[in-house]
Write a protein that binds this DNA or RNA. Sequence first.
DNA 1: TACGGATGTGTGAACGTGCACACAGTAGGA
DNA 2: TCCTACTGTGTGCACGTTCACACATCCGTA
Lengths: 339, 339
Amino acid sequence: MSRPLPQKRATVHDIAAAVGMSRGTVSRVLNGGYVSAEARAAIEAAMTDLGYVPNNAARALKMRRSQAVAFVAHEPHSLFLDDPNIGSIMLGANAALSLADHQMVSLVVESARDNERVARYLSGGFVDGAIVVSARTNDPIIKVISDLALPAAFIGHPPDLAQHIPFVGIDNVGSAVAITEHLVSTGRRRIGMIAAALDRDSGIDRLNGFRDALGPLFDEELIADVPHYDYGSGVKGMRDLLEREPGIDGVFAASDAIAAGALEALREAGRSVPGDVGLVGFDDSTWAVRCQPQLTTVHQPAKELGSCAAQVVLRQLSGETVETTRQLLPTPLVLRDSA
Amino acid sequence: MSRPLPQKRATVHDIAAAVGMSRGTVSRVLNGGYVSAEARAAIEAAMTDLGYVPNNAARALKMRRSQAVAFVAHEPHSLFLDDPNIGSIMLGANAALSLADHQMVSLVVESARDNERVARYLSGGFVDGAIVVSARTNDPIIKVISDLALPAAFIGHPPDLAQHIPFVGIDNVGSAVAITEHLVSTGRRRIGMIAAALDRDSGIDRLNGFRDALGPLFDEELIADVPHYDYGSGVKGMRDLLEREPGIDGVFAASDAIAAGALEALREAGRSVPGDVGLVGFDDSTWAVRCQPQLTTVHQPAKELGSCAAQVVLRQLSGETVETTRQLLPTPLVLRDSA
DNA sequence: TACGGATGTGTGAACGTGCACACAGTAGGA
DNA sequence: TCCTACTGTGTGCACGTTCACACATCCGTA
């Protein structure tokens, strides 16, 4: 079980000794300060010569900063496969952190074991802050962040038990209202919804927005309830709706993937889109432009969500007090061919 | 620019002082050793009381081990969006590392800036090893890993300049041969290929396998060369092939996404699949079962690639010398409806 | 000449941890 | 009685870094 120690690497002492100076001067070359041109040149030469790389662990220990920010993704299994947004959120966050010369490290939480280990990791000083995507309510990670006052930002699921932790998201209710009103404005009257993930607030909010926007046109019978935001759920949900109400002329799918599945079911049933049925999605993911016809949908600013959350964490790191604890990003409607 | 130091946290000293014992005893309850039952109880009580969490940075500095392994993903923009495999590879790696109580940290490389920062990160002692996905030939990260003798494993793209670094992948040539032979066995004679990513070895190998398998049936005219493994490339490539050879009756698409695009182009052109044209893909991704008809394809063992690479790194970490430096995982054919 | 400031360099301490070692007490066997 | 083995605890040092401080030198000016 005992492991061999890794290869010994050059330290500030080694290069100081190599050029006959003290470690202080070497440190000054690295971090700024008064150093003569000759000394600097000699030290830099020795550094490349001995292949010196500063030890992050030692630096983090002394400085109490690691220049790293965690990106914690929950249940990525479904996220990676069904929701193309998680990748864009990551890239947005990475870009923003990169500009501030911070390293983004993504941590995947799939099991209880992962959860505990990630919580330990977050509290151990390897990261200065965290961006947390779609955590569940009673997540131990929320507790750790709250207890340690770790600079953090949540995306996609506000942490109800720790109201002081900043949150960045979209207005699911408002977006659902807007896209539903679009359906109505195109003359549809028997409008249904394929509602998904009603155990998450994103799913609930989209359904609520749909109900609000429809008002008297709303019919409980025209809600198909499916578990996930994926293609298969879309196929099933649409078949369900068609069976219940053959005269349906408008459908709001809770995601683009669902809409793509619905499109397939409509094709099976011989219905044309947008001729017979107007169909709208949610996300503006790659699904939206792959479909035939292309989807009218709600643009989800995934990249911006990521970079915005990163900014929030970086601001906390630089000592600013973050005032706006809940921030909602705009979600423009994207009008294409499906409705 | 100067930042406030994070909140002071309890250390071994603090809890030792709290119970009137020495730090050594505290260390022993953490890491094992002779401790009396009363002492252990008192110390554990003080730990939860003061909210003690061990400092990873200090531990890593002292132990020269961080219990963390990096997962480096290159150009994730295209990977996350077009290739659903990267997510599965990550999850496979995470599961294997998790079992060995190691933390997987994913690092995204998108820009030259990222590249440099990640290289620094890898060499700084925050991770004990690295899993690298699809690195390019002259990648500075390869150099760092090689120079520091960092335990590592490559996936998807063997590091040509550092032959001693272990590699886990699939036999692209053999897989392409197998799936092409399947096409031939179903009676197709005018068989084309939509070849993609011919700047990567995966793309080149798949084309070579196709050529080898076809033998005298091979026709250079029936190769459509597209840049990426994505849907749009598939549409374009298939239109191209149809224009060049209207009598084409078999197509090998270099990926499932490409095959899905090809399916769309074939539908446009009024060709039925598999009636008029036999179509096969590569990857066995979610695309394969979404298509109508479902795709016959090559199963890419994404999860296994990840876990296998993780095992290789873990073995190096435990001091074993890794003998098999190049390891290819089996890629069974998945026969569905498209050919 | 003396003095203050700017420039350049060395030294000691500290960050929080784990481990080797030292030490004390007890028990058992020669 | 002494020696050894085992249990339990305390102490010093090292990991590699940064920073405050001390010290040294040089220059310009009063």
